[in-house]
Design a protein around this nucleic acid. Sequence first.
DNA 1: AATGAATGAGGTTTCATTCAT
DNA 2: TATGAATGAAACCTCATTCAT
Lengths: 189, 189, 189, 189
Amino acid sequence: MTVQRRRLEPEARRQEILEAAERLLRAHGPGVRIDEVVREVGVARGTFYLYFPTWDDLLEAVRARLFEAFDHTYPLPSEVRRPVDWPAALDWLVEAFVDFTVGLGGLHDAIFHSDFAQRRPSGDDAVVRLTAIIRAGQEAGSFAAVDAEPTARLLFAAIHEATDAVAAGADRDRTFAALRHILRGSLCP
Amino acid sequence: MTVQRRRLEPEARRQEILEAAERLLRAHGPGVRIDEVVREVGVARGTFYLYFPTWDDLLEAVRARLFEAFDHTYPLPSEVRRPVDWPAALDWLVEAFVDFTVGLGGLHDAIFHSDFAQRRPSGDDAVVRLTAIIRAGQEAGSFAAVDAEPTARLLFAAIHEATDAVAAGADRDRTFAALRHILRGSLCP
Amino acid sequence: MTVQRRRLEPEARRQEILEAAERLLRAHGPGVRIDEVVREVGVARGTFYLYFPTWDDLLEAVRARLFEAFDHTYPLPSEVRRPVDWPAALDWLVEAFVDFTVGLGGLHDAIFHSDFAQRRPSGDDAVVRLTAIIRAGQEAGSFAAVDAEPTARLLFAAIHEATDAVAAGADRDRTFAALRHILRGSLCP
Amino acid sequence: MTVQRRRLEPEARRQEILEAAERLLRAHGPGVRIDEVVREVGVARGTFYLYFPTWDDLLEAVRARLFEAFDHTYPLPSEVRRPVDWPAALDWLVEAFVDFTVGLGGLHDAIFHSDFAQRRPSGDDAVVRLTAIIRAGQEAGSFAAVDAEPTARLLFAAIHEATDAVAAGADRDRTFAALRHILRGSLCP
DNA sequence: AATGAATGAGGTTTCATTCAT
DNA sequence: TATGAATGAAACCTCATTCAT
């Protein structure tokens, strides 16, 4: 009488869950429950725990997916082919980041502003990337000799705040202008 | 078998609860519960609800107390007596803010990084203050003609991040140096 | 700084509380709280307990007042002056009772249909009265030789149900017709 | 330290809870709590809520069970085989009803006289059944041409009161005699 | 690999009643 | 006679996680 169990390759099932969770989190933000995810996928509650030890592990996987997607779409510029205009590249990347993040909808809150973000700090991937950009720009002579790592950390907070501001309805142009000014003022000689 | 009732003026009892909660939150961070607070104070659970309709209302009161304490200890500089060196004043205030916030211990997380901060946004008092400082500095000719409000918002995020960095063990001097550099670069002509 | 205490004759204060409670119960039915009553009267919570040991005692007092009011307005007919048409007198009394009870509004539920009615059964005043009427009618030869006490008890249940029916929106005329038919059929030879 | 989990078919577990609740309510009347029920069954509190969203939902299910049990044991008489002696059938059914209800013990109060009965009126199943009997008897020429529906409602109140009277210790024979007299007087030509 | 019944700690809130003042 | 702060048991419900099947 039970519905036919769908046996799937483990990796495929894992993806299915991941995608369903992402979809629901985008739509409804934090507050999405395991029950809703498994109903969306059409599996039993226990199945969830075969793939993710805890709910936080799922969120972590979702976060990692997002970061990978962003890195893939917007790879760090490289000077291999030709010289890079680092200030312009930074502006462009930052704008892309903000738009990407705002586009996450409720997923943004779930990943960055819920208790989850406290329990599982995000490993500073973004800060590491920004540090790399600053160093590359410094080597190219485009950026001043600031202390790259702490500067990247603080600037990334400002960038993230721009995201929240825009998501909350602040004027996009004024926010970006202020952000660009801060970045230039902090990094350019 | 019941402990002797201690009858207090409402305001005194309210303070008692507030202080006990603050003490526990400093020590143990978010995750402190109503039950622990009332045990600490030595009153019944119902007494808590006499003064705070919900746990979030308590946190809000704690937050307000903190903000008032900071504002009282570090009032905004004024030019009434003599001209103010705005860049220096800002550096000094920012350093005071970071040290004050780091000194909050677990209370910092409970107020700024838990779901509470999402549910009850803090009304941007700090951003308003920073905006006022920027405008005052602009009028005095010390700061460049940046768009004060969004700039204040983004810079405050960087300041707050410095707090988190120092609290998390980052090098205090390098963090402050980077922060000062960002503030100068963003605000000074 | 406190509001001037109004010292009243104990009996006057008791009446005040009683009347306030009745007013609120009429308007809002069961679910009225002690707090609301004392606020309405303008006294402190503790004052309530100087006059009524428990909430149920207040309800009991309200109930007694109502019964007295009804008895006073609709006294039992007596044959002292002239012969009584007992069937007609009963019909008339019953109709008066139903209208009186329906007119109680929310007080009706609070007195007759809440847990209070279970905890403090109403002493059967109404049944005693109805028993007396049946006996008087029997002595006058108007009513059949039924077993007065149990009959009164069961018939009163039907009368009370007519009250609930009318209060709940049942057709008044059909309800009264059915009730009269039951009373006649049960009591008249 | 945890007790071994007992896994059951949902319907079986539901029955288990229902039966335990009925047992406790019979023994202790209204005032039985969810905690007592789950202790009796030997399951966790959450399990209760898996089957009954609220305590009232449980009571409703218990009530429905009782009504079904009664209907099954004492089906309405039918004229399919041979003519029915409606007055006698009614007397018999009524007596069965009263005895059944008195036999409920504390469950009777919990179902019929607690606030629950106010919050979840019982849908008048009994009145509907009595109405049907009256109409059938009228068609057979055994009952007078009374207004069936309101009459049934009022008479059922008297029947129910007989239950309460007997449960409270009133003389069974006198109560039944009075009840039979009322029914005959109201319904027979 | 999959199921879904069961768990139980967690958290919120209410209000009749008591009692120190 | 009056106050009103304090009590604390009771009731409610949720949901991440476990585990017998």
